[in-house]
Design a protein around this nucleic acid. Structure first.
Lengths: 334, 334
DNA sequence: AGGGTTATTGGAAGCGCTCCCGGGCCCTAC
DNA sequence: GTAGGGCCCGGGAGCGCTTCCAATAACCCT
């Protein structure tokens, strides 16, 4: 094992022959220190390998130096979706510019939610990013209960939080549907994501928008939960109940992949018999056969913007909610 | 916003009419407190909604109440692999039983590594779990540099850390290869994962083991990096350089999926022309066409065991390194 | 030259908690 | 009756840092 004990600021000060206050000013890069003392302290810091103790600093400044990313997913399988990995990557990218640490809280269980509450209540973090809320999520009220900035990733179903960043789900889904209509498809079904989710509901609404504008009656809706198996199951139900289906807009790439699988199992060709569009534009959309036409949403950017927004809140600014654009990516499946 | 300031232990003590020491004893559930005072304090705690300040506690006890999970992956795409999500899930499951928080550090960039160093040096965490080391990873020496317990997930390439948990990569890969041999395949190629990784190298070695035992000469090796595209590319090279190939053992499920894709593109049937086995047994192994025969490794368990081991280290015990068993899961691709 | 800024400095008071210690107290054993 | 040995209990000294403050020192202007 290495050094048993880290040097303290007092030791640095002693070695540099200055007061602790002066040493503190130097390491915080504050004013009112002569160049001579500054040099002396910096030398001592280097010689001793001093690193300020964040705990002590946190206690004194009332700033923890950490933020939490709370993910309120439905089940383990969902967390496994690369979507979350991308979010984490985005958040991390932004946080790397600062010296805030990232606390990860999986708030899907009651236990996890309690933990999040505790963290906020005891001010163990300077801010929170909250993702993927279910409609009834008790966490939605979090923002008001504690004196800690909270930014939402995606909106909760029945609330408009003060600060959030979201993708243009409705617009993207509308784009996708319009594309199918433009292709001449008329029996366009939809496989939704979880409808107790704003993303799920909004994407469905986007589909309805496009159908209404085109004067088509919404054909058929099957509910899924964004996952591959749910997409496959929904597609199977769809084929049974609505065999003339010639296009489907899925709530996610995973669901679309599931639909592809089910279509193949039933001997329908894609896009020949049935055109399919996904949503997300994950890497996996390029690994399906055929490659997936899908709605691109900037997931990494979503994570980044959440972090940015939180940082600016912590800095005392007043950022505005943000809706990131989505766009259609044309590939082979539609 | 909610309550501006949390009550302190002093206020609790005052309200309960006891000394701060007594109040502290109560909330720490320590001895030497009369039932009367205990009740009084507990009432005050409830009324005030007191939650002890972890920062102050950490400063006093020299225990932070947090551990870090550091992921040293190669690139963003790799982090996106559900493998990591599973690890996180496993770690989290174990941590949920305690009141330790999870600090997530993406240590793939120089910046991330520096951050990890800083965290350790300033004792911002009580322990570290370190995953997925490249061969040359400077982080491998971490364990010796600081007075903080470190457990490795997977072994670094040229070192045997004091504490680690790993899957039986070599054994699993051998199993897979033996299975192919048992199927009567004789032109068995391998698509490796990153060879500067113990997992990559060990899986390759397992393949060699099986080939040697069967008296077969290792046919052909193409190097990949565990990812889907790398698997597809490797398979394409393989088909060109070694057209008689009738089986391939891939370094991961993703690579196997890529191989499947390439095979299909070249008009080879699976498993008819070429049998394919993967490694990992992710959910996605069931979503390929055909479903993937693969080596199951308990990823979630790996995360759990890492956390367990770290907890026991923190508790001052001396756990032993752990190698988790792998097993072959037979599906359609081989 | 004198009054008024403005820089620098170290002392000391916290931040909110833990935990050692010594003083009461009561009970038991001799 | 009294010396020990538990239990309770509160005082107080930290944990390592920031930051306010009062005291000097240096400097500017007219």
């Amino acid at each position: 094992m290495g050094p048993k004990r880290q040097p303290t600021l007092d030791e640095v000060a002693a070695r540099a022959g200055v007061s602790r206050s002066a040493a503190s000013r130097v390491i915080n890069n504050a004013r009112h220190v002569s160049q001579a003392k500054r040099d002396a302290v910096e030398r001592a810091v280097a010689e001793l390998g001093f690193v300020p103790n964040p705990t002590a600093r946190a206690l004194a400044t009332q700033q923890v130096g950490a933020v939490v990313l709370a993910l309120s997913h439905h089940d383990p399988a969902q967390f496994t979706d690369p979507f979350f990995a991308q979010i984490i990557l985005g958040v991390n990218a932004e946080l790397e510019k600062t010296d805030l640490e990232l606390l990860l809280v999986l708030a899907n269980t009651t236990q996890g939610q309690a933990r999040l509450q505790r963290i906020l209540k005891s001010r163990r973090a300077d801010g929170v990013m909250l993702m993927a809320l279910r409609g009834d999520d008790p966490l939605a009220a979090l923002a008001d209960q504690h004196d800690v900035p909270v930014v939402f990733g995606g909106r909760p179903l029945h609330a408009e939080p003060r600060w959030y960043v979201d993708a243009d789900n409705r617009g993207g889904s509308r784009l996708a549907t319009e594309h199918l209509i433009g292709l001449g498809r008329r029996h366009i079904a939809v496989i939704t994501g979880q409808m107790d989710t704003d993303a799920g509901a909004s994407r469905h609404r986007g589909y309805l928008d496009a159908m209404a504008v085109a004067g088509l009656s919404p054909s058929r809706v099957e509910h899924g939960d964004f996952t591959e198996p749910s997409g496959a199951a929904a597609m199977t139900r769809l084929l049974a109940a609505y065999p003339e289906v010639d296009a489907v807009v899925a709530g996610s790439d995973a669901a679309a992949a599931g639909a592809l699988r089910a279509l193949k199992a039933h001997g329908r060709s894609v896009p020949g018999d049935v055109a399919v569009v996904g949503f997300d534009d994950l890497l996996t959309a390029q690994h399906t056969d055929p490659q997936l036409t899908t709605v691109h949403q900037p997931i990494h950017g979503l994570g980044r913007e959440m972090a940015k927004m939180l940082l600016s809140l912590i800095a005392g600014e007043e950022p505005h909610p943000l809706i990131l654009p989505t766009r259609l990516v044309r590939r082979a499946s539609a």
